[in-house]
């Protein structure tokens, strides 16, 4: 390690004193947990290193920018507008290194826990200003005029025109002004947002990539509420628990007693197996769902799944 880089690091300690000198994603060396002096100053630091937790949420983006979709990028740009300097990069490396232990999203509020250098993780809250019922009424009426908005949202995509609809009503989906947003972290850093908040921000961006409805939720409208607001349609019940819909019991079927049905059964239609081949696009069904929310595994989710699906395909062919 060069003297220069050592120096450079030290120069940052003031805004970062609680867990000094812990992680620079552009530095490669792992620092030992021992103490060391600095030149002839005879100055020893009781150096504290961030605690690396196991099983934290790991960002799926391995390098570069966070957020693949325009709406996730918009979310990040909000964070960037606070000009918190190097904290932004440290937030990134926190997000990638699994320092964030949990994130819970509720209407208007996000709660998260992030592991820093103290034994107890820091507690973070991010609050967004919820839009009132009247505002939502206006918005859903406007959204209902074109089926494409709801359809795209449900398919995991946010049409850019949605922003305009918010604007037309004098509202905004993304937090624009400081008063739209209230962030808090229990760390001693005076800066708000701190790098812990930034880390949560980055991970949220990945979630928004997958499910743009979360942004609506943060503004106070759940997915089911949006569909209900769009209009009355036949078969109105929306199950809030997906479970019951998927596992709906079929009506009982009594056993036949005559020999043909009882022993022999019906004749099998032709082509009952369907197409038998390895699909051209691997794991297509899974890719429609996207990444698993707040993935904590050591392996990258999509890579692990890709390999399982392609091996399983071959196994399936063997069972024919």
């Amino acid at each position: 390690m060069s003297w220069y880089s050592r120096r450079r690091k030290r120069s940052y300690y003031y805004d970062d004193y609680d867990d000094f000198d812990e992680d620079e994603d552009d530095e490669e060396e792992e620092e030992d947990d021992d103490d060391y002096g600095y030149g002839g100053y005879g100055y020893r630091y009781a150096y504290r290193r961030k605690i690396t937790p196991v099983g934290g949420i790991k960002a799926q983006s391995k390098r570069g920018a966070f957020g693949e979709t325009w709406w996730a990028k918009r979310w990040i740009s909000t964070l960037e507008s606070f000009h918190i300097g190097e904290r932004l990069n440290r937030g990134k490396s926190y997000a990638r290194g699994g320092q964030v232990l949990s994130i819970d999203i509720a209407k208007g509020e996000i709660k998260a826990k992030v592991q820093g250098s103290f034994a107890a993780p820091y507690k973070i809250t991010i609050k967004l200003k919820e839009l009132g019922a009247a505002s939502w009424r206006k918005l859903t009426a406007a959204l209902g005029r074109q089926a494409i908005f709801a359809a795209k949202l449900m398919a995991g995509e946010m049409p850019q025109e949605i922003e305009q609809i918010f604007k037309d009503n004098g509202l905004s989906l993304f937090p624009e002004k400081l008063r739209d947003l209230e962030t808090n972290c229990s760390c001693p850093d005076w800066s708000n947002p701190c790098k812990h908040i930034a880390a949560v921000y980055f991970l949220l961006a990945e979630e928004f990539d997958r499910d743009p409805f979360l942004l609506f939720k943060l503004r106070g409208l759940e997915r089911e509420e949006l569909i209900a607001a769009l209009g009355k349609t036949p078969g109105n019940t929306i199950e809030t628990t997906a479970e019951s819909a998927a596992e709906a019991e079929l009506p009982p079927e009594p056993l036949a007693v005559e020999a043909a049905n009882f022993w022999q059964g019906g004749t099998l239609p032709e082509n009952i197996l369907g197409e038998v081949r390895i699909p051209p696009v691997n794991a297509a069904l899974l890719k429609r769902l996207g990444n698993f929310p707040f993935w904590r595994g050591e392996e990258t989710f999509s890579e692990a799944m890709d390999s399982i699906y392609s091996k399983a395909s071959t196994e399936g062919l063997k069972a024919l």
Partner: peptide
């Protein structure tokens, strides 16, 4: 919901609009 034929679509745990919107959203892509 008022159309005559829409009665046929009355099934438990089924919301025609939700299904249509999400299916059309997929088909649109």
């Amino acid at each position: 919901a008022k159309a005559k034929k829409s009665k046929i679509l009355q099934r438990p745990n089924f919301n025609a609009r939700e299904y249509l919107l999400s299916s059309l959203g997929l088909a649109a892509s």
